[in-house]
Design a protein around this nucleic acid. Structure first.
Lengths: 194, 194, 194, 194
DNA sequence: CTATAATCGAGACGGTACGTCATGTCTTCTT
DNA sequence: AAGAAGACATGACGTACCGTCTCGATTATAG
């Protein structure tokens, strides 16, 4: 007997689209609920009715736009590569529009918005980390990675990428990423990789 | 013939003090120029006259409060430790108030404020990185670290710390940091450390 | 298809009331949009939405307060009196609070605010002058006033009153007004009145 | 002995000049002490040191610019003309730049600035009225004007002019002024003038 | 013919108000 | 019921001037 939420799908799409566009044009901080409503040709109330905050709108827009492109299937053999080879792809997503800057902006915003932070964790960080951990554990079981804390191994791969993106503000490019993977594997792989 | 900018030191101090206090009380996002002016007993114009943005005020307040406590002297012997042992200290600073949250907030703000980003780089990131690189090069010359790109080595140490702070939002604590240093050294040190 | 401007009547009343009160308390120059908003318990934007300037607010408040009290009916017989006897009443209105000072202030403001001047002409000066001219023409047709330019006759009556109010700053009182009317009638009436 | 006021004449001139210019360019309300100081190349304090208010500056600038051009000598014979013929000249001054608009603005400002009003009376209105009264009394002694209150006669001439300037905002032009003088004289002269 | 003190330009200071923007809530009318 | 539209109270924005207050740097008497 749930209330008959007759939500307008067209409006939803228009709002998410407008939010994503404006976020790229003006940055997350320059984005405004009023602006989104105007651009989407929608009443403000329609936004406030369905989303608790501007962060939630942008986050949903971001997820919607990205779709399932983040799901990298866990391949059977070559488990070590499943970790190492996945990294350049992630780096690519991180470094380039439209995903990169928006995602960085969102992470920035989570620093002073606990609600957004929680949602970001649940919808973005959590799932991604779960997949990574699964790959790492598989590689450990196959004897390819040392039996270290899997979270630590994950951090070793992704930490430097995000660090460069957020703090150094030099989105990591290909050659750097390859050398990074090599160096990290040297520390966490069982077989010397050099 | 230079314009005699006779800046009031008392006002400057009051402003920085108020900014830091309010940033801790309400967070960076909840901080307001009007609020700082009111708390400091100062006209708004006095803030706008000397700082280009709220981020710049907080950054200067942050720097002023921190003072020279960031300068960790480069010790002669034990160069490897000079890198490895420095890391837990940095992690501590990162993780705990007042420095940690404010710094995280500031990094967040740089994601959509290029001017602030530039200043942050020049005043915070740059000097810190320079010190780190010096230590790394010294250790390389002493044959303790492999001849990898020093920036990459630095990223391997600091990336995971910042990643946990900013993205995972779990400020790194002691045991984790030690295990991290061990793992990274395994990848970048010349002598097997295990 | 007209835009459904659903203007809040309560807010409008509160604003006009506050404007009139403050204008008397502090004078037109000391009146502030912020002050009106605060006194009326209203957001500033609500004032800026509906009025183009502080002068316009005060003018409307003035008109609203005065209501239709300015309409002096044109009596049938005694047309000469219709002009002459009307004058003391106008002088009274001019000389005493709340109407007098506010009106003088408004006229003062029109000297450097063309938009306000235009509105003042349309809403205050124009209608009043039209009534006066009607009376004068009637008296001329009845042979009581010389066939001079009716505007000139009107100016002869009202000019000295406003001159005393605005320039000499001695609001005209009864005996003066009577002597004035006598003297003017001596110049413009057909029958010697002395 | 008196304090040695060593006042800089150059600065005074520059200030008055700037004040007059800006008053014509932007109107009295748009004129600013800061603006005058900037235009005159003078420190604000130099203005505040010598004048109590912006009105005082403009008034002095106005007087300075006008100089003695207001003194119309009282001619011996033809005393009636001394009153009547003086009027068109005054009307001219009233109606045309630079004197007219600035003077109207000043009178407007006196409506909400008692201090300025007092100074205006002492320096402008008072002397002018004194001269007018002298002419009127002379004409009365010569039997040319009826023995009415001289102030009333003066008001009859000047009131309509100011009324048109300030309230109707149609600066009186020549033909109107002539007809006005005729009509007024008809009321106040001993000899029928028609 | 210096010395000294008021005046000068410049402009920082604590304030008040400006007019604009966005917030999140609300009401009204339309679909 | 949900939507588009937009008025509303609130509060911060960044700017303009206010009138007061130091700063050196002239600059013209009074010693």
């Amino acid at each position: 007997m749930t209330a008959p939420h007759r939500r307008n799908a067209q409006a939803r799409q228009a709002i998410l689209r407008a939010a994503l566009d404006l976020c790229q044009e003006r940055g997350y901080a320059g984005l405004t609920i009023e602006g989104v409503a105007a651009r989407a040709g929608v009443g403000k109330q329609t936004i406030y009715r369905w989303w608790p905050s501007k962060g939630a709108v942008v986050l949903e827009a971001f997820q919607d736009a990205l779709g399932p492109s983040l799901d990298v299937p866990l391949e059977a053999g070559d488990r070590l590569g499943a970790v190492g080879k996945n990294t350049p792809g992630s780096a690519d997503l991180l470094s380039h529009p439209p995903v990169g800057p928006v995602r960085a902006d969102l992470v920035g915003a989570t620093q002073h918005d606990p609600a957004l932070a929680e949602e970001f964790r649940q919808q973005v960080t959590g799932p991604a980390r779960a997949g990574t951990l699964a790959r790492i554990r598989a590689a450990q079981e196959a004897g390819q990675l040392r039996p270290l804390d899997p979270d630590l191994i994950a951090d070793a791969f992704f930490g430097p990428l995000w660090f460069n993106l957020l703090v150094m503000r030099t989105p990591p490019e290909d050659p750097y990423v390859e050398r990074l993977v090599d160096a990290v594997l040297a520390g966490v792989a069982t077989t010397p990789t050099r």
